[in-house]
Design a protein around this nucleic acid. Structure first.
Ligand SMILES: [Mn+2]
Ligand SMILES: [Mn+2]
Ligand SMILES: [Mn+2]
Ligand SMILES: [Mn+2]
Lengths: 219, 219
DNA sequence: TTATAATGTTAGATTTATCTAACAAAATTG
DNA sequence: CAATTTTGTTAGATAAATCTAACATTATAA
């Protein structure tokens, strides 16, 4: 059974994997906030459990087993976040830290009950998909708001970044998942957008913000 | 901040403490299922944090600070057990193992929300008191059913043992907290009792069982 | 009251997860 | 392509939590 530390590495590896499924030691060290030698020794450990493939001086690659293990931890994380928001009244900006701990609880029934109580949700409070019990993730392809054009109407569906600061910014603008926005205009100089949505007329959103908003175009 | 291991030792120390607040190394080792040298080194560590007083060859004694720390972990454990039963539909025999893990979550709000959602319960699903936010425990003095006499009517209020096996035995006899029992007779030979309660006429309860049932006499 | 048993301690080893310093390989750049 | 930078590895150390073997102290009992 994976230790808490190993579980956190697996999750991070899963999230950092590029199109070739590769992760560099330096990236992993940066993300985990540990030194490269620490990562070097950890990937050797993870390899012994067949969770990844490691060859000297090469980026590491999660195996199928490793990907499944990671997805199941992510499942517990996201179910927890959704439970905290939907059943316990937390704000979407408060739940990540708690889920970071709860995801390591070994008690399948605990998470199954959460799932049942919520009616088997498929996304978490930040719009990210919840992997199923087999560790499969449904790929959803949303568009970044910054890719949209003036005149379009979109629905905010997910976020590319869920830091507390960003979530608090969105709270301050009363932007939440499901909000319908109409793009009034796009400023050519800095790519900032002016949008209208429930309760807000001509709200300006910087490019930095628009890049982090994932939307479904509806008109 | 106490590690998970330290938290488990503190909790066990709290529960093992006798009237003089003393705990022997051997008891602690037995309860924690580790060797005596392991306990020996751990109590030295706990002493460095002023959680207990240790002197060579003497039983250890929790300090006020140590008692409070322990009581606050027990609070998290019992709130969790109550939440699992009252809000998530678990049976009282299923919750201890999960609570044993959840009690180590560092997220005051998480437990405060549980507490609020349940309306600030004062006992857990096994009838044990939930320490308050200051770590104070209200002492309740129930009677052991085995101390009662034929003819008396009592209400099942708590248990001295909450092992899964015992809880499953109680389930099989449809005995739960709050059940009103009338003692028909006490067998002189083996101290077994014959009792009547909702749905059960003349149910025989062994001395072993009666010793583990804490009751309030109501007639 | 001495022998024996029970309890507790010390010494030394192991595993896990981390670090720094030094070195090696690979990638980038002038 | 050679110099430099970036990335990755090795070696060796540390702290936490555990173990066994050996020894010491305290308690019990003959
Ligand atoms: Mn999260
Ligand atoms: Mn985590
Ligand atoms: Mn319990
Ligand atoms: Mn525990």
């Amino acid at each position: 059974m994976a230790s808490q530390t190993e579980e956190n590495y697996l999750k991070t590896l899963f999230n950092l994997a590029n199109d070739k499924n590769e992760v560099n030691i330096s990236e992993l060290a940066a993300q985990m906030q540990v030194s490269m030698p620490t990562v070097n020794s950890m990937v050797k450990t993870l390899q012994k459990n067949d969770w990844l493939i490691y060859e000297k001086y090469k980026p590491v690659i999660l195996t199928q087993k490793g990907k499944k293990e990671a997805a199941l931890i992510i499942r517990k994380h996201r179910l927890t976040e959704m439970f905290l928001v939907n059943k316990m009244g937390f704000g979407w900006e408060e739940v990540h830290e708690i889920a970071e701990q709860v995801e390591h609880i070994h008690a399948p029934k605990f998470f199954e009950r959460m799932d049942e109580m919520m009616g088997f949700p498929t996304i978490d409070p930040h719009g990210s998909p919840i992997p199923d019990k087999q560790g499969r993730i449904q790929e959803i392809n949303y568009l970044t708001l910054s890719k949209c054009k003036a005149g379009q109407t979109v629905i905010l569906a997910a976020l590319t970044n869920s830091s507390t600061e960003f979530l608090e910014f969105l709270n301050s603008r009363e932007l939440s998942l499901g909000t319908e926005l109409t793009i009034n205009s796009v400023e050519n100089y800095d790519q900032s957008m002016v949008a209208t949505y429930v309760g807000h007329t001509s709200e300006t959103l910087s490019e930095k913000v628009c890049e982090r908003l994932l939307v479904r175009v509806i008109g």
